[in-house]
């Protein structure tokens, strides 16, 4: 079980690092996908090794795939709006509001 969990942890950390450091909005979207998929690997792993007599973990993973797809669609639409307004997809543009 441990290698699979380690793989998920590595994927999750890579995604976390990407979200926090990427300046390109598309890069942020891709990193978010990595984080969702890390959680998916966890679900499937736990389902196989902890409770193999039901399918809850795999079912959850399928739901997450759908939700992540929906989220990516909305994210792409917002990226498109950013491109129209600033002629670029870099997050450095977005610093109008500051506290």
């Amino acid at each position: 079980m441990l290698p699979y969990l380690a793989l998920a942890a590595v994927l999750f950390s890579a995604g976390l690092f990407g979200v926090l450091t990427r300046r390109n909005t598309l890069g942020i979207l891709m990193s978010l996908e990595l984080m969702f998929n890390a959680a998916n690997i966890n679900f499937v792993t736990f389902n196989k090794f902890i409770s193999p007599d039901n399918m809850i973990g795999q079912m959850f993973a399928i739901f997450v795939v759908v939700v992540a797809a929906a989220e990516a669609v909305v994210g792409m639409a917002i990226v498109l709006l950013i491109y129209r307004n600033w002629q670029g997809v870099n997050v450095d543009n977005m610093r109008i509001m500051k506290w």
Binding site: V19, L32, M35, F36, V79, I82, M94
Partner: peptide
């Protein structure tokens, strides 16, 4: 919208993990 999207999706990934 972009800020809310990044933060919202990020938080839901954390929650899911």
């Amino acid at each position: 919208g972009m800020k809310y999207f990044v933060v919202g999706a990020f938080s839901s990934a954390l929650l899911l993990y």
